[in-house]
């Protein structure tokens, strides 16, 4: 574990310096919202940002990516053979990610990297990614704590933590990847007072209120499933995908083939359990044809199935993006509460 100190200007230079050996992604204000963007000449990274509107999950799990390509032109010797598309898996740094977003990759990793199935694209990208995160006490009131995110100084998902001490950042490497990145970042030595200051910032410091989920583990799945509360939760839902597309932990995808002239692509694109097409069978039957079934599935998956299956808390890092963006105010904190207090 190494610690280094950076002034606020030095941090931008450090991020810039990393570009020699990494593809560096930094928070930049594009239009009205911040988003992570490849750091190029002329970009102005803004490390004082609060929250990106879209979660940075796309850096490891892009909204659309080409998995395979093929040709149906029979004049070509390799026609009708699926080939993997070449991709850039060179090392990348997400510089300035917030701890909850960093943690979301750990939450998703259990799905993409299992004993039985290993998603090659996810695994390669996640392995090539170093997460340098900013810990600052500026959470908003829509955010909440879960097992996977306790507060602004919860550094479990990060490789390097940057503690914001007002006029400077103290960087602390947490993993081997982080050690390497920090070595390339430079920085000044850390004084004993600074070290003491960051040691005081534990995962519980300035922790937001937790979503009530402590009793969900003991509920019977089928009882929750059959509950009448879902009607009330779902009534207002318009079944758009704003919540799932902004969510840092929603991992569902669809696979689509597209043919342009005689060249084909097999694409993987984000899907949302809010869409009827998500579960539509080729026969025309749709097991989740009703809105209430789809809404129930979203919350049951996040709050109950994930919890039961992986025993790693609920599938949520409390970033509050869905709470902010839902046009009809479906609040996951309220749903947690209803599920937690549910009695048959």
């Amino acid at each position: 574990m190494t610690t280094k100190s950076f002034t606020k200007d030095a941090l931008i230079k450090a991020a810039d310096g990393l570009r020699k050996s990494y593809r560096v992604f930094v928070p930049v204000k594009v239009g009205k919202f911040h988003e992570f963007k490849l750091f190029e000449d002329g970009d102005k990274p803004d490390f004082e940002y609060r929250k990106t509107r879209k979660s940075p999950k796309g850096l490891i799990f892009p909204q659309s990516e080409r998995m395979l390509e093929y040709s149906i032109d029979e004049h070509k010797p390799d026609h009708h053979i699926m080939k993997e598309s070449p991709k850039d898996y060179s090392p990348q740094v997400v510089f300035g990610i917030r701890p909850y977003d960093a943690m979301s990759f750990k939450v998703m990793d259990v799905n993409f990297d299992t004993e039985d199935y290993k998603d090659p694209w996810w695994i390669k990208r996640y392995a090539a990614t170093t997460l340098v995160g900013i810990c600052r006490n500026d959470l908003d009131s829509k955010m909440f704590a879960t097992e996977n995110f306790s507060g602004p100084y919860d550094i479990r998902g990060l490789d390097v933590a940057l503690y914001d001490l007002g006029d400077k950042y103290i960087a602390k490497s947490l993993t081997e990847k982080g050690e390497k990145a920090l070595a390339a970042m430079g920085g000044n030595d850390v004084s004993a007072a600074e070290l003491a200051a960051i040691e005081k910032l534990t995962p519980d410091t300035n922790a937001p209120q937790a979503a009530p989920t402590d009793k969900i583990k003991e509920k019977v799945v089928n009882d929750l499933f059959d509950s009448t509360m879902w009607e009330d939760i779902a009534n207002g839902c318009i079944n758009c995908g704003a919540c799932t597309f902004l969510c840092p932990t929603c991992w569902c995808f669809d696979i689509q083939d597209e043919i342009h002239k005689r060249e084909g692509d097999r694409l993987r694109i984000w899907d949302s359990c809010m869409f009827p097409l998500y579960t539509l069978h080729a026969s025309g039957h749709n097991p989740r044809g009703k809105k209430v079934q789809r809404v129930r599935n979203r919350f049951m998956h996040k709050i109950k199935y994930y919890l039961d299956k992986y025993e790693k808390g609920i599938m949520c890092v409390g970033c509050g993006r869905c709470v902010e963006a839902c046009p009809v105010n479906i609040d996951i904190r309220r749903v947690c509460e209803l599920m937690n207090n549910f009695t048959k």
Binding site: K54, Q63, I238, G241, F245, S272, F275, P327
Partner: peptide
């Protein structure tokens, strides 16, 4: 981001299968 919130918020968009699907 193709979340279709605009489409779904609209009371006039009620086709059982949208052309997108």
């Amino acid at each position: 981001i193709r979340c279709y919130a605009c489409r779904n918020a609209c009371p006039m968009c009620y086709c059982p299968t949208c052309f997108v699907d």
